[in-house]
Design a binder for these strands. Structure first.
Length: 736
DNA sequence: ATGTTTATTATTTTT
DNA sequence: TAATAAACAT
């Protein structure tokens, strides 16, 4: 019902939803109901205006966001939501290329290389181009190529832009790199965009097909799009010009992924008639938090004014505190969390700790473990990055696409088959000489005596056996679905047995394979060939598995980058120190410094009710012994008006953390809550009394961090592990 | 061919 | 610290 769709919206939101003709730019501050607007806009288009969902394309930045959007639309539109095109730019492009890529010479069964694969190809390319990987780190060269592709510069385009010796080196590698991808019928992430752009540019019929289909185009997180993505969007919107982009320049934090803020300016220039809607009402955070965040972001020079206001109450003051080191900092967080949980009935899941670099999660994790607080670490070890998962995927890729040399070399000797580096090198060289793929070269081994002579006889038999196995799998792939194929492969390759019997943590790793098998189940219904292709595409594009235990009441540990788009009633931002938040790598560049500030802004605006800003006086860097240099408080703290900041809990003195003299160490109030606990309070054999568990005997008492972990065998309640500082423990004197 | 030791080097990471 | 890669030994 149309009334419902518009009813729950404020005037500017309503404007954003109903402005359906022509180009629209929605500037949406944090917590302003951005997702809500997008979802309602689509529902409005379908329900009220009568646009077929088939003709709407919504682009998001993560698969997670796409899934969420689809789910919310399902609630509003029911099964009609299924016809909607909704996904990331990469997924959209992958689908277009799968359908029409042949027009630009892309095999229908092309593979998508992930970062690791791309790395191997780069190294190969550097070797061929005779570039010393020690002088030119492969990662940096790849980065340069990736940046070029994001600006839509292919090899020829880049050649024209070469302006330094370094560029020239990059160019040489770029040429080889691209040739290797083509030979393997493979694309990298950047190619998905670049090749789609080229396809739409050079093939009017294909362009017409997609332009004609998409009557409405919506792009979320527009501030984080790169040039290639923007240009593709322009192509798709070329016919109807109904393009709606939503973004917030102040939350642009991915310039290092080639996001280009100038896209917003370009949009206003390219679509001079575009309507601009500002969503400035924040429905998320208290006045205190909004005001502080506004002050912080207002310090940036490169900025469009975008005032934000909230109708919420003033709320609690922001708490800023200094701990002695990262361990105490983490303890402070966890103790306060525990206090919130007990005194104010705040669930753990309402709280998040955010940090600049992943390494900071460790201290927090340890503190959680120490205090028995459940936590959920976001994005730690990614499922599809695990060796065993990648191995199986490589086998499947090889079956789907025999030209994929990277995958072949990955699994050729996994499990070990006695095919060493030397044999592999020989094989590759011979294949190159013959101008065939490595797998085809294997096929020729038995008949070609000359070629065979190049391979040591010991390896030859193993190679032939491997080839026979792959051929068998390829035949089986014609009739077996993905799951059955996977099962066959695991047996024939001896992978299962090897994993379980020969490797460390074999059991655990096998379970990961089982999980992978589980995700493949969804692709069964697509039938043999289709299912395999779709599965591989999904694996390449959906690198995050957020099937994490969402039902558990646990606090969230997350990087500031990953936190974008989320919200929590209580947020702890840790590591507010010069060199960490602003990160040392951005200190010398004003533009990067502004991005660091935006990152902090993103973090602050995740908080609904409570915001804690922590820092450590000394911080150890990657285990380098003990002390760590004294830290200077982050310059960002200076931007927060002191009347919005409370003194640290438990501290008698007023906090001068937000003072204009942050270098004045004496002015900084230490967080007394994080004070070190007493000396070893108990020893094994001591008799203690606990308020709840009654009497017991100390089994052990060990230092854990700044605290003491006491294991006690209680008479009635069994063995418990307790923290001395928290548990209501009392020593019972043995004898008079 | 493969296992072991030492050297090196560290942001962020939606795809 | 810890992860990875190159060098080295078996």
């Amino acid at each position: 019902m149309p009334v419902d769709i518009l009813d729950a919206l404020n005037p500017s939101q309503r404007q954003a939803v109903t402005a359906i003709e022509g180009p629209v730019l929605i500037v949406a501050g944090p917590g302003s109901g951005k997702t809500r607007v997008i979802v309602h806009r689509i529902a409005y288009l379908v329900d009220t205006v009568g646009v077929s969902p088939h003709r709407i394309c919504a682009v998001t930045f993560t698969n997670r966001a796409a899934r969420e959007m689809r789910a919310r639309l399902q609630a509003l539109l029911g099964s009609r939501a299924e016809q909607l095109t909704c996904g990331t730019f990469h997924a959209l492009c992958a689908a277009i290329l799968r359908r029409d890529g042949e027009a630009i010479g892309l095999a229908h069964n092309y593979v998508i290389y992930d970062e690791e694969d791309q790395g191997t190809v780069i190294k190969q390319a550097m070797e061929e181009a005779k570039v010393d990987p020690r002088r030119f780190p492969p990662h940096a060269v790849h980065e340069a190529i990736s940046a070029a592709k994001a600006q839509l510069l292919d090899v020829e385009g880049f050649r024209l832009r070469v302006g330094s010796y370094y560029d020239e080196v990059v160019l040489r590698v770029y040429e080889r790199y691209q040739a290797l991808l083509v030979a393997g019928q493979a694309v990298d992430f950047d190619d998905l965009l670049l090749k789609t752009f080229v396809l739409l540019r050079d093939h009017a019929d294909v362009l017409e097909k997609y332009q004609g289909r998409y009557l409405h185009l919506l792009i979320d997180e527009f501030q984080d799009t790169n040039v290639a993505q923007y240009q593709i969007a322009r192509q798709l919107a070329g016919k109807y010009r109904n393009i709606c982009v939503v973004g917030d320049p102040d939350q642009s934090i991915y310039s290092w992924r080639h996001a280009d803020l100038r896209n917003i300016l370009s949009f206003q220039k390219d679509y001079a008639d575009c309507r601009v809607v500002h969503l400035g009402e924040n429905y998320r955070s208290t006045q205190t938090i909004v005001a502080a965040a506004q002050k912080v972001i207002a310090t940036n020079r490169q900025r469009l004014e975008n005032p934000l206001h909230t109708s919420k109450g003033q709320g609690a003051p922001i708490v800023a505190a200094e701990a002695y080191n990262e361990e105490e900092e983490a303890n402070w967080v966890v103790r306060e969390l525990d206090r919130l949980h007990r005194q104010e009935r705040v669930p753990y899941s309402a709280c998040a700790a955010m940090y600049r670099v992943n390494a900071q999660s460790r201290a927090l994790e340890e503190a959680c473990l120490r205090y028995g607080i459940p936590y959920h670490l976001v994005g730690a070890l990614r499922f599809y990055h695990r060796k065993e998962v990648k191995d199986v995927v490589a086998y499947l890729r090889l079956v789907a696409n025999p030209a994929d040399e990277v995958s072949l070399l990955r699994v050729l000797n996994v499990p070990p088959r006695g095919i060493g580096q030397k044999t592999q090198d020989q094989l590759v060289r011979w294949a190159r000489g013959q101008g065939v793929s490595a797998l085809d070269a294997l096929g020729r081994l038995s008949s070609d005596e000359q070629g065979a002579a190049l391979i040591p006889s010991s390896g030859r038999a193993a190679l032939l056996r491997f080839h026979a196995m792959v051929q068998e799998l390829r035949q089986a792939a014609e009739r077996l679905d993905v799951v059955a194929l996977m099962d066959l492969l695991l047996e024939r390759a001896g992978y299962r047995q090897w994993l379980l019997e020969e490797t460390e943590d074999g059991q655990e790793r096998w379970e990961n394979i089982t999980e992978l098998r589980g995700t493949a189940e969804d692709f069964r219904r697509l039938g043999p060939q289709e299912g395999l292709a779709a599965f591989l595409e999904g694996v390449a594009l959906v690198s995050d598995q957020d099937n994490a235990e969402a039902d558990r009441d646990a606090m969230t540990l997350i990087t500031l980058h990953q936190a974008k788009g989320l919200e929590f009633p209580a947020v702890f931002i840790v590591g507010l120190e010069e060199g960490l938040l602003p990160h040392s790598r951005s200190l010398d560049d004003p533009a990067q410094l502004e991005e660091e500030r935006r990152l902090f802004y993103v973090g602050m605006t995740r908080a609904k009710e409570r915001l804690y800003l922590l820092r450590a006086f000394r911080r150890r860097f990657r285990g380098s012994g003990m002390p760590g240099e004294p830290n200077t408080p982050s310059r960002f703290l200076r931007d927060i008006p002191s009347n919005l900041i409370a003194m640290p809990l438990g501290s008698g003195a007023p906090s001068l953390i937000a003072s204009r003299r942050p270098r004045d160490e004496a002015a900084v109030t230490p967080a007394t809550q994080a004070a070190p606990p007493p000396r070893p309070p108990l020893k094994t054999g001591d008799r203690v009394r606990h308020a709840k568990f009654g009497e017991g005997i100390v089994v052990s008492c060990t230092r854990s961090g700044g605290d003491h972990e006491v294991t006690v065998a209680f008479q009635g309640a069994g063995v418990k592990r307790l923290l001395y500082s928290l548990a209501p423990l009392e020593k019972v004197e043995m004898h008079p």
